[in-house]
């Protein structure tokens, strides 16, 4: 039982490593933490296109905040 769990954990780890490398090559801007969250959301049945729209929207909003931070009034 424990051995099967370990095998599955190793498979997940290897898959995540490959996905992160693909993500870097495609210049998606996802780090390991956000990729892990996205993987779990996809596993929960969230549509990947809808999820990409969410990520782009969040980036836009936080970029606006960071830009305003660098422009003191």
């Amino acid at each position: 039982m424990a051995s099967a769990t370990n095998t599955n954990l190793n498979a997940v780890r290897e898959t995540m490593d490959v996905l992160l490398e693909i993500s870097r090559l495609l210049n998606t801007g996802l780090d390991m933490e956000s990729l892990s969250i996205c993987v779990r959301l996809c596993e929960q049945g969230i549509n990947p296109e809808a999820l990409s729209a969410v990520i782009k929207e969040l980036r836009k909003a936080s970029e606006t905040l960071k830009v305003s931070e660098n422009c003191p009034n």
Binding site: L19, N27, E43, P48, K56
Partner: peptide
């Protein structure tokens, strides 16, 4: 064998986000 149930959905997400970050 990937240990994940939705590996193709994740790949689809990466395709949708391709090039969306500023270049290194």
């Amino acid at each position: 064998s990937s240990g994940l149930t939705e590996v193709d959905s994740v790949l689809e997400l990466l395709v949708c986000l391709a090039g969306s970050a500023p270049p290194p």
